[in-house]
Design a protein around this nucleic acid. Sequence first.
DNA 1: AATATAAACGGACCGCGGTCCGTTTAGTCT
DNA 2: AGACTAAACGGACCGCGGTCCGTTTATATT
Lengths: 194, 194
Amino acid sequence: MTPVTAAERSDAARNRERLLLAARDLIEQGGAAALTMDRLAEHAGVGKGTVFRRFGSRAGLMLTLLNDSEAAFQARFLFGPPPLGPGALPMDRLIAFGTERIAYVVEYGDLVLAAGNASRGRFEVPAVALWNQHVEMLLRAGGVESREPGLLAGSLTATLDPERLLHLIREHGVTSERLAASWSELVTRVAGSA
Amino acid sequence: MTPVTAAERSDAARNRERLLLAARDLIEQGGAAALTMDRLAEHAGVGKGTVFRRFGSRAGLMLTLLNDSEAAFQARFLFGPPPLGPGALPMDRLIAFGTERIAYVVEYGDLVLAAGNASRGRFEVPAVALWNQHVEMLLRAGGVESREPGLLAGSLTATLDPERLLHLIREHGVTSERLAASWSELVTRVAGSA
DNA sequence: AATATAAACGGACCGCGGTCCGTTTAGTCT
DNA sequence: AGACTAAACGGACCGCGGTCCGTTTATATT
C-alpha cells in the first residue's frame, strides 16, 4: 500500500534510531555539554550532514530528545488528575502548574537549556505558546480579568524561564521549594486584586 | 608621579579607543550582527588577541558599548527626577521603572541582546542585580510584604527580560505602550493584595 | 643612552554549529 | 533483472567566538 505522504526510507529510519541512541549515550556519559554534533555523528557512525538533515539544529535535536517527557507533561496538565489537571480550582491548578514546571526544569536541566537556543529564539517553541494559552485560560477561569490577558499570562510564564530557574538554583542555592512558594505567592497576588 | 595601580600603557589606551570607534562604526553600518570579532580586529587595524585582551568576550564588548547609556539609566532611577527617581510614590516609581526599561530595550535592542550572552548567563551582569535590589526596595516601600522579597522582585524583573520584550515587539507586533500597560497592571495587581 | 621587564601585541590555531554539493542507495516501475 | 529517480548520505568547507604563545614595545631604572 502506497501511503499518501511519502513513507520514511528504511535507512533513514535506522539512522535516526542510531542517532537518538548515540545522543542519549553521550549525554549519559558527559552531560548535555558532551553532545557536540561532530561527536554525535562519529559516535553514531553517520555523516555530519545526516545529523543536520534529521534534526535541523542542535536545539532541534534536544527538542526531539525531550519530546516524550514534554508530551507527558502536557498530557498531565491538560488531561491528568487534579490539582494539575481538570477538576481542581483554577488557581490551584495554576499553582500546581508552576510547581510541576519547576520540577521538570530541575530534572531535565541542561537539556531544556540547550533546547532553548533554537534558531529564532526560545519563544518559538510550540510548547511555550501552549503554556501561555493554558495559563491564560486558568487566569480567566479563576476570575482574573485583564485587558491584555495574553501579556499577563506571558509575564507569569516568564517567571518560569528555565535559564532563570536554573541560575537561581545552581548559582544561588535556591531550593525548588522556595521557587514553588514564590510562584504560589505571585499567582495568588495577581489573582487576588480586583 | 608613579600611580599606585599601574597606569594603562599609552598604546593600550590608543588601541582601546580605536576599537570602540571601529565597533560603533560597524554597528552603525550593519547592526550588531555585523560586528564579529575578526572584522572588528581588522577594521581597527589590531590583532584579534588584542580585542579579547581588552574586552574578554563579545558580550563584554557589548557591555562596554552600553556602559554609558546604562549608567545614565541607573542614575535616572536612583537619583533622577520623579516619577522615576526619588520623590514619587513607590508604586509610581515601580511603574515608571518598567516603562523606562522597556523604552531602553527598544532603543538599544540588538546591543542589549548581544550583551546578554555573557559567559555565565545573562544574570551575572551587575546591572541585573541592581535592578532586582531596586525593585525589591520599591516593593517594600510600597507596603508589599513577602517572605521572599528577592524572589518576588526577580519574578517581576523577569517580565522585563530583553529577549522576551523584543520577541513580542518584533514577531508579534506588540507596541511598547501595550507592554508598559501590562507591566503597570502586573505591578498594581502584585501590590494590590494583602 | 643602555638595559631590563612587565605589559601589550598579533595571528595561527581550535572546536563549535551549520551549509553545500557531488555521490550513493532504497524503492518503484516496466 | 534492469533502469530510473527521488531521497538520503557524508565529509570537506565556512565563519564564528575564543585561546595560546612567541614576539614586540612602552616605560622605569641606572
